[in-house]
Write a protein that binds this DNA or RNA. Structure first.
Lengths: 237, 237
DNA sequence: AGACTGTCAAGAGCACTGCTCACAATTGTT
DNA sequence: AACAATTGTGAGCAGTGCTCTTGACAGTCT
């Protein structure tokens, strides 16, 4: 109990600090759900908590890092929900796993449109996403890569459905290869999977941002088949 | 010169008014390109024009309608560029027309990222897109429907590539049928085309909003093949 | 020519924002 | 119980969108 005293004393203060910081983030989330990211006001958050605006700055150094906290939070909630939905499907049911993933993504977006806009919409100007956000942001793509990899090993991919990938595109995907090696998800599947992922996000964004007005009636029905179309891009159906 | 005097005098006023309004929109566009939509300040626009902030309100009733003017403007510029790019391709070259369209869309987005965010990114909160924006917003989709329709009549679509469309999805697309009838673009092509369009916008948004960081190196190369993948969704390749 | 009318720039003002700072109160630790 | 780090306070700065009154001006009508 000699050297360990310092950590203990630290956690005492730090615990209270973390708790209040958590309350601030919670209040900010509540406000975000109502007014949106652009109108998120630090003063309003302070009011909501019954504290003075300047006091909040003791815990959150700026409005931008508050936004960062909310972004990380949103990515994590989305990631957790998607992981749970996908894990509930029989491993052999590849199409089912993709559909569960896509449906969970859309469901989360519909339930939290402002959070969706926060992470998939326009980045707030003058705001550069810090390193903290990139790891939670990879959770959903990681789930997808799991499906893609299993689809490859299952041998059930219709390679006639997907065209070849040029060497140049193979080189263009070099960065992602530090995380997902070629022998796990080969180039054509990776390329098609990325397009399917972008298509999925694009489809949900279209719906949430109102671009389907006067175009599509029953979004749910349309989206269900849209998922089936998109996954043909990796040769699955 | 008795009754016509009034109209003449009116247009005199209206002309000056329209000119100054145009200058305001131009200044706003310049500011938009620098600071983005969320940070667009009516006062800064006024300063830029050497007029006092309150004077701007004589021409533009609120910041929101200024945004609307910019949105309409952006849609029109994008639409014009895409139409020109697509019109330059041989009518029989269906794949070429789609690629020209997609490339023009991406090119415009890269050249005007803030305008892209304005129309395809998160809608500004508390702002409902008025009727004025929906017509210019249809210019690019209209170009696409032209390609789709020609692809259908050419008989060069590989129907084996695209799955059938359920009756429910056919009904879900009812709203768009007031503009694009079924005999022009049949259900399966329309559904695939919508998914391709959403995928195109999603792909460009991914690139512009930084979601391809540490994923893709050479966006241009990757995008070129991405276009080819997306259009297989209507059975073209 | 003079009265009238509609238009417009100017500037003060309101309520709000993010953020800083000096000062006071609190509180965990010694 | 006393110390010192930590936290809360309120004033203040510079900025925002927007409203309203005031005064100047130009075109129209009698």
């Amino acid at each position: 109990m000699v050297n360990s005293s310092q950590p203990v004393h630290r956690t005492a203060r730090e615990r209270a600090r973390a708790e209040i910081t958590g309350e601030i983030v919670d209040a900010a989330r509540r406000q975000l759900a109502i007014v949106g990211a652009a109108a998120l006001s630090l003063r309003a958050v302070a009011r909501d908590l019954g504290m003075v605006s300047s006091a909040v700055y003791r815990y959150v150094p700026s409005r931008d890092v508050l936004l960062t906290l909310l972004i990380v939070d949103a990515y994590d909630v989305l990631g957790a929900e998607v992981e749970a939905a996908e894990a509930a499907i029989d491993r052999a049911d590849l199409l089912g796993r993709w559909i569960a993933t896509g449906t969970a993504v859309r469901g989360w977006g519909l339930a939290h449109p402002h959070d969706w806009a926060l992470i998939f919409g326009s980045p707030v100007p003058g705001y550069a996403a810090p390193q903290d956000t990139i790891r939670p942001a990879t959770r959903v793509p990681e789930v997808l890569c799991g499906i893609f990899a299993d689809a490859v090993t299952s041998g059930r991919l219709d390679t006639a459905l997907v065209g070849d990938v040029s060497a140049a595109v193979g080189r263009a995907m070099e960065p992602v290869r530090t995380v997902v090696p070629r022998d796990r998800v080969p180039d054509p599947v990776m390329a098609g999977g990325l397009t399917a992922w972008a298509g999925l996000v694009g489809a949900v964004s279209f719906e949430l941002f109102g671009h389907l007005h006067n175009v599509i009636d029953d979004h749910e029905t349309f989206f269900a088949e849209e998922l089936r179309r998109l996954i043909t891009l990796i040769g699955l159906r």
